Lab assay of single mutants.
Amino acid sequence: PQECLLLEPGLNEIMANSLDYNERLWAWESWRSEVGKQLRPLYEEYVVLKNEMARANHYEDYGDYWRGDYEVNGVDGYDYSRGQLIEDVEHTFEEIKPLYEHLHAYVRAKLMNAYPSYISPIGCLPAHLLGDMWGRFWTNLYSLTVPFGQKPNIDVTDAMVDQAWDAQRIFKEAEKFFVSVGLPNMTQGFWENSMLTDPGNVQKAVCHPTAWDLGKGDFRILMCTKVTMDDFLTAHHEMGHIQYDMAYAAQPFLLRNGANEGFHEAVGEIMSLSAATPKHLKSIGLLSPDFQEDNETEINFLLKQALTIVGTLPFTYMLEKWRWMVFKGEIPKDQWMKKWWEMKREIVGVVEPVPHDETYCDPASLFHVSNDYSFIRYYTRTLYQFQFQEALCQAAKHEGPLHKCDISNSTEAGQKLFNMLRLGKSEPWTLALENVVGAKNMNVRPLLNYFEPLFTWLKDQNKNSFVGWSTDWSPYADQSIKVRISLKSALGDKAYEWNDNEMYLFRSSVAY
C-alpha cells in the first residue's frame, strides 16, 4: 500500500478484514516500526519515573501501586492483599488454560486453511493473523472459523447495514437495554456533547472508545462508531461505564469510582452478554423472526463469544505479567523485547512474524500501555462479568443454560445491579461482590459453565490435532529472506536491522 494510513481508520481495517498475509505483515510491522521505536526511549523513562512515584508513596514499584486498587484492609472477613491478586490471577488462569488451548488448536487448523504454508500444525499462531493489530481480540476471525457456515449468520453486521443503522441508532438501542432493566436514560448533555462518529477531516481524533465523567452531571462517550456488531456491543460496554458513573455520582468525590477497576469494566460487559444472544437480537429485529436455535447455532454463537472473551485472556494476563516484571526490575532493559516474545510464545501461543530487536517497544504500540492504563482490569472484569451475569440471571428468573440468558426487561436484575453500582468505592469490593453474587472472591466457574458446550465440542473437533504449541517454530524461518527484502523496500531505514548471520545468508542466496 502506498497511501498514508492512520491506525483508525486504515490500518485497523486491514487487520480486521485482509486475507493477504503480506499486506497484514506490512501493516503490523509498519505500526510497530513507526510507533514502537519512537516510544522506546520514552517508555524507558516512564518506567523509571513511575517507579519513583510509587516508591515515594510506600509501594514496592509501580506494578505494586496498580495492584493496590484491589487492596482491602481493616474490614474483618473482607480483607484482600496485593499479593493475593497475583495468586488469584495465576490460579484462575491455570483453570482457563485447557479451554484456551483447545480454542487455540481449532483456530490454528482454520488458519492453516486460510494461509497454507504459513502455519505450523504444532506451532504458535503468527501475531499478525489474529483479527486486530495486537491479536487482543480474535472476533474478526469468526468468518474464517465459523463451525456451521450453512446456518444463518449470528454476526448481524450485514443486517445492521441493510437496515441503515447508524451510530445514533446503535447508542439508542444500548440505552433502551439499560432503561429496560430500570436504569436511567442518558442525559441530554450526553447526546449533545458526545463524539460518536469519526469527525473525519474536520479534526484529528483519538478513536479508541472511551467513556468520560467530567463532573457536575456531564457524561460523554468518545467513539468513532462503525456499523458493525462489534461496535454495537462496544456501545453497551461504554454506556455501562456511564451508568456506573451516574449511579455513584451522589457519593463524596473520592468515592466516585468503581469498587475496583475490574468492576467498572465488567458492568457494560454484562449487558453485552445479553445483547449478543440470538434471543435479544431477534427481539430488536437484527435476526429474522423465523431464526431457529439448535445445537449448531448454539456452537456458532459460543465460538463467536469465545473468540472475543476466551481468546483475549492469555493476551491480557501475559501483557500485565510482563509489565509487573519490568517494574519490579526482573527483566533487564536490554532484554525487554526478547522476554516479551518469549512470554508471548510460552503463555499465549503466539509468535512474532519477524524478529524484533531491542530498538522496538511492541507493548507500547497498544493504546492502554502508552496511555498508562493498568491492564489486569480486563482479566478480572471477565471473571466478574460471568459471576455477575449468573447472579443477575437468577434474579431475572432465567431457566436454562447461562449462555442463553438475556436480562433485558428484568427490573429485578437491574435493581440488584444498581444497588452495587451506587456504592461506588464506599464499600470494599469484596463486600460489594458478595452482595451481588454471594461470594467475595473472583471465581472462574461461571465462565467455564457458560462455555461448557463449546469446550465439549472443541475436544471432539481436536481429537486428531495437536493441542498446545511448540515454541520453537517461527513463521519467518522458511520465508525470512523474502520477508526481509520486502520489508526493507517498504520501510527503508526503519526496517529491522539484519545481523551478520542474516546478511551472510542473504549474500549466499543471491550468489547461489
Rank of each mutant, 00 (worst) to 15 (best):
H241Q: 08
Y373C: 09
N153W: 07
H368W: 08
A249G: 08
G189S: 14
L214Q: 13
T187G: 10
A249V: 11
P209I: 10
T187S: 01
R136P: 01
F219D: 13
A250K: 12
P209K: 10
F375T: 03
T308A: 08
E265R: 06
K304R: 06
H237C: 01
N257G: 08
P252R: 13
T139V: 02
Q188N: 08
E192G: 10
D213G: 09
K304L: 05
A249M: 01
W212E: 14
Y373D: 09
L214R: 14
H237N: 08
H264Q: 08
L214F: 00
Q251D: 12
E261K: 10
R381A: 02
F301M: 06
N153E: 07
Q305T: 03
R256D: 10
F375H: 07
S272E: 05
M229W: 08
G217I: 14
S272F: 06
T234W: 04
E265F: 04
T210Y: 08
H208W: 03
G215L: 12
K216E: 15
D230L: 04
S272R: 08
Q305H: 08
D372L: 01
N140Y: 04
N140C: 02
Q305E: 04
Q305M: 01
P209Y: 11
D230Y: 07
Q305S: 07
S272K: 07
A249T: 12
N193I: 11
S272M: 07
A250L: 06
F253S: 12
D230H: 02
D218W: 14
K216G: 15
D230K: 06
F253V: 14
D218A: 15
Y373P: 03
Q188L: 10
T210C: 08
R256Y: 06
G189C: 15
H241S: 02
F301D: 05
F375P: 07
G217H: 15
P252Y: 10
N257D: 10
E269H: 04
N153V: 06
P252N: 03
V206F: 07
E261C: 05
Q251K: 12
G215V: 11
T210R: 07
E192N: 13
D245T: 03
H208V: 04
R220T: 13
R136H: 07
L233Q: 11
I309P: 01
F301I: 09
G217Q: 15
A249W: 15
Q305D: 05
W212R: 13
N140L: 02
H264G: 05
M229A: 05
Q251W: 14
G217L: 15
A249R: 15
K304V: 04
P252H: 07
P209A: 05
S374L: 09
E265G: 08
E261S: 07
D372V: 01
L233I: 05
E269K: 10
K304P: 02
D218L: 15
A249P: 13
G217T: 15
A250Q: 01
M246G: 13
Y378V: 05
T139S: 05
Y373E: 05
L214A: 11
G189W: 15
H264D: 06
T308H: 02
T139W: 04
